[in-house]
């Protein structure tokens, strides 16, 4: 927390643009402007004089940079729209990916995200699905594996749906599907009976879905279980007994603010019982 304060006093949002490279891993604030490595020479206003003149300014390599969630392109400028730590991924090709690792609970639909939705209404050809966004998503009854006009999928109001967004932008109603581009379900569709659905923060979901997440590896050793993570912060868990399901849900909820040692303790205690 002390770091946050120090950063804020140093550069209030809306101050002079900072170079993205120098603030990696630090807190950035909405409204702040960032400079990409190749823009650094041009600099913000006033900085041009300080820098040595570059002879090959014309020939500098223009690499494509991807700005992820929390950043927005405005002309040639890169603006921050969310508060959080600036992250960067080294590129396979191009200039890499910058994004803001932010903490939030509110979900905004993003194209391509896998989410868990609850069917709230059936109307004609589409289902209305609550995904936790500002507006319910629409889901065509044809967007299931093997569904045809004659062969409708068996989906009831109240069912849980694991699906993917194909349309998600600020101007239109989000649209979901439960098939991939090849027409296969690939695990999408109605999530099975029973189980428990609960909500966690969006940050925790990303933490748990990270490829080298210790929590999930530990949890997987406990007992037979099944988990579904939606990028909208919803988690569905199921184990053999209700008790095991509840334990699982409690662990996943609690592990967000635990240190590695605390986690180890809990898991060793669980393994004993």
């Amino acid at each position: 927390m002390a770091e946050v304060v120090s950063v804020m006093t140093e550069s209030p949002a809306g101050g002079r643009a900072r170079a993205a490279r120098t603030v990696l891993g630090q807190v950035v604030l909405p409204g702040e402007e960032l400079l990409l490595p190749e823009q650094e020479d041009e600099g913000g206003p006033g900085s041009a004089g300080e820098r040595p003149l570059r002879l090959n300014a014309e020939a500098r390599s223009q690499v494509r940079v991807v700005c992820g969630p929390g950043l927005r392109r405005c002309g040639d400028r890169l603006l921050v729209t969310k508060c959080g730590r600036l992250r960067h991924k080294e590129p396979g090709s191009g200039g890499g990916v910058y994004w803001v690792d932010s903490q939030q609970k509110r979900y905004v639909p993003v194209k391509g995200d896998h989410v868990i939705g609850i069917v709230t209404a059936k109307s004609g050809d589409i289902f209305k699905v609550d995904v936790g966004g500002s507006e319910p998503a629409s889901l065509s009854y044809l967007a299931f594996e093997g569904a045809t006009k004659r062969n409708r999928p068996n989906v009831q109001v109240g069912d849980l749906i694991y699906g993917q967004f194909v349309v998600a932008n600020k101007d239109m109603e989000p649209e979901m599907v439960c098939i991939d581009s090849c027409g296969r379900a690939n695990g999408m569709g109605v999530i099975g009976q029973d189980g428990l659905l609960f909500k966690v923060t969006l940050g925790l979901i990303r933490k748990l879905l990270a490829p080298d997440c210790e929590i999930i590896q530990e949890v997987g050793k406990l007992y037979p279980l099944e988990i579904v993570f939606g990028m909208n912060g919803r988690v569905w868990v199921k184990a053999k007994t209700i008790q095991q399901t509840l334990i699982l849900a409690n662990i996943l909820e609690a592990c967000e603010h635990m240190t590695a040692d605390q986690r180890k303790q809990i898991f060793s205690r669980l393994a004993e019982s």
Binding site: P69, G95, V110, G112, L225, I227
Partner: peptide, 21 residues
């Protein structure tokens, strides 16, 4: 030369959301 992308999938190499152990 800046491409906007609002999905975390691309940024963080997230795993598939369904798991069974």
């Amino acid at each position: 030369f800046i491409i906007e992308e609002q999905s975390f999938l691309l940024c963080e190499d997230l795993l598939y959301g369904r798991m069974s152990f």
